[in-house]
Amino acid sequence: MVAWIGTAVRIGLAVVWAWAGLAKISDPQAAAQAVRVYRILPESLVKPFGYGLPFLELALALLLLVGLGTRIAAVISGVLLLVYIGSIASVWARGISIDCGCFGGGGAVAASKTQYWQEILRDCGFLLLSGWLIWRPKTRLSLDGWLTA
């Protein structure tokens, strides 16, 4: 039963990452700008992160979908989500008004249109999914199970 719940969690998190990653790859310039407006990274790192993060998300989606290295994928998912939550909190604390660009888009928005609470809560929800898989990485219908059978 727990293993089946794990399968649902794993696929759920895979869908989240796939959606987040796919939404960011069509316009590299917009992806870079979504990173730039956080004003955390120096300009020289803006493009590597803007271009690379969506593919990190897609790789995590792929690994979780097939259940390969579920625990390490969940650990990296958790770390990434903590980084995202921290970045959003940092932007919020510094009084910058942006869209988090979590699922595409991003960039500056009017101060009245920020949604930091919702964005952080949503990421915390995803963090719970990652936590479950770190705690119980053995799931049904996974490559992990097949490889270690």
Partner: peptide
Amino acid sequence: RRQLTVILAALVVIAAAVVIGIVVQNGRS
């Protein structure tokens, strides 16, 4: 060993995706 192999494979998938992604997106800009 199997676990380490799986972890290694996962990390390789991630690293390859990120590197390919950065190169492709650089070329597209």
